[in-house]
Design a protein around this nucleic acid. Structure first.
Lengths: 346, 346
DNA sequence: GTTTTTTTCGTGTACGTACACGAAATTAAT
DNA sequence: ATTAATTTCGTGTACGTACACGAAAAAAAC
């Protein structure tokens, strides 16, 4: 038996007093406080979290702020699923998780969702700061209210976030470089396809490209690396045209690196152009990407483990709120290589 | 409010009666039983596990039966760490996890540990049935006592296990085949190095080899694949000799596949023999293997995610015992590719 | 020394469920 | 109809902690 009662008896005080000491609620003389702490120490007593949660009326709520998944194919579906799975596990432990979503291409919807989130007065927040500028502008409201927050997916500097959970984008690109080098013959030309213009917020993509190039630099593989940017991804003809034009100009192109989750668009065009000799590598195992991985028009994908970002993020906040467990500042998730041969166990 | 009391009130019975229905403890007329079940359904009431655990005196214990890790470098260190981490998380929820270990090369120690485990009268068991024959002989004692058990790491047929958690070895070998093919020039000879003779229990290794060869068969890559078996791994000279002899006979050898966790021994010899042109692939990210991965004498490793095997195994049993959540029969963990470039985030 | 203020701490109830005990209701036996 | 046997169910207490309330003790003010 090692209950609050037992500690109390050993200290010749009541359970209430011990409780006050444990929770730093004051109203206890320094003398008895020290005595009780010593006895707690000696008996290495710890509160029974089960009883504690039951007795405590205070309900914790964690709010999440993530881009809305526009379809089941969307990248953002996965973090959401991870969040929900984690939330389910801790729901019975008195934690509620509220979801707030925004349109990642409409900054104003981000701000709007953020304010709604604030109104819910959460105990903690999980957010994906993909809109960098806006995040910097409003994040101080969380600091001000002393609401702890964890960021996922987008590494962002200058935040007082409790932790970041996600991938090291540079290393992800670097690994992509290695894989691309593996699958390509010597002296091939590589094309890097960027998708949107002026996306100041997608630092991750920039870092991936840096990492990708760094691999070739460091290994003295003198490959020609070209860039194009394709804006109108939804316009299939436009994509085909852009690629066809490029490939005419650079016939030695044997590899295409897509540093975003949109490799499947490129793979589709390459399929239409009947260029079986071109290897494609990209990021994120969305259903569409997986389709092209399976039919061998995409050679490799690198997963950011988005599900885990959501899952671990919620779990971390739970441990912080309930068990007062101080997390690390950064949790870099494994950089997972997904090929046709292992995608099914992914 | 959705408490047992509320359900009781709606059904015009007392909380005790509802409790009896929930736990199938009998002593309730069919009529009221059905009524209560209906009301529970309608209000989708679920017991509060917190209060339930607190009120329940019954303590669950999960026993584990795993090979002893002979050093921190040992493969079996990881599942153990996963088990411990998972056990820590649920300890406060009233679950104790007891560890039983054996020497995987002494079957009698396995039997001995098994009987000790039985004496502890666990609520459930997690075991790695690496000793196949012995497992088949004694596992019925668990069935007999109706103790549910989960197996990890070694896929074994003919067991009444609740679940299996581990890798699909065949697919692991198949993937290794693809990677080996990527890194090798055409027309290279490949050597498969088996480590111990007569290990009837390591079905996984056999399956990996099958998968490995299947890749080359299916892709019509006419590579010459040779085998050797090296017994005395600890005898470094012997290993060097064996490899040197083989390489003399087959000078075209450019790749070595080690379908076990012992690739580092081979890598060391190849390093000594100064054959930088030979690529090595193996399994399991033990510290020693990682060392050779980092110094580029091993090209790739495939991880079985041993930590997750332990972690998820305990978690699954917890959910089964406490939340009565029926698990799937098989949980095949991701087949993770580990290269020098992503090993640090592993 | 008395009263007032402040500090310190003990008591009691609540959290939601589990389960023992025994009372009430129903059914069976006479 | 009475008693006995059986079924059905209500009550009460326990699990260990949190926290409000207010009493007792100590300190301060007069």
């Amino acid at each position: 038996m090692n209950r609050i009662k037992d500690i109390a008896k050993k200290a010749n005080v009541s359970a209430g007093t011990v409780d006050r000491v444990i929770h730093n609620r004051g109203g206890v003389s320094e003398k008895t406080r020290v005595k009780i702490l010593k006895i707690i120490e000696e008996n290495n007593y710890t509160v029974n979290p089960i009883a504690s949660i039951l007795a405590s009326k205070k309900k914790f709520t964690i709010a999440t702020l993530l881009p809305r998944a526009t379809s089941n194919n969307d990248f953002w579906q996965s973090p959401k699923e991870g969040v929900i799975a984690s939330a389910d596990e801790i729901h019975s432990l008195g934690i509620d998780v509220l979801h707030f979503e925004f349109d990642q291409f409409r900054p104003e919807s981000y701000i709007e969702a953020f304010y709604k989130l604030l109104e819910s007065d959460p105990s903690a927040v999980l957010l994906a700061p993909v809109l960098h500028k806006e995040t910097i502008e409003i994040i101080h409201l969380l600091d001000q209210k002393k609401i702890p927050y964890v960021t996922i997916n987008a590494e962002t500097e200058g935040l007082n976030n409790l932790s970041y959970i996600g991938q090291n984008s540079y290393k992800g690109g670097y690994l992509a470089g290695k894989l691309m080098n593996w699958v390509l013959p010597p002296n091939a030309t590589i094309l890097i396809v960027e998708i949107r213009k002026n996306i100041d917020n997608h630092k991750a993509i920039t870092n991936r490209i840096k990492g990708f190039k760094a691999y070739f630099d460091e290994h003295k593989k003198k490959k020609s690396i070209q860039h194009i940017t394709i804006d109108q991804l939804d316009n299939e003809n436009f994509v085909n045209q852009s690629l066809a034009t490029f490939l005419e100009e650079y016939p030695q192109t044997k590899g295409i690196f897509v540093p975003s989750s949109k490799a499947h668009h490129i793979a589709k065009s390459i399929q239409i152009l009947k260029r079986k000799d071109i290897e494609i590598g990209g990021f994120d195992t969305t259903p569409q990407n997986i389709d092209f991985l399976k039919n061998e028009h995409i050679d490799f994908l690198i997963s950011q483990k988005p599900y885990q970002q959501g899952y671990e993020g919620i779990k971390l906040l739970f441990n912080y709120l309930i068990h007062k467990k101080e997390p690390l500042k950064n949790y870099f998730l494994p950089i997972e290589i997904v090929l046709k041969e292992n995608v099914d166990y992914h």
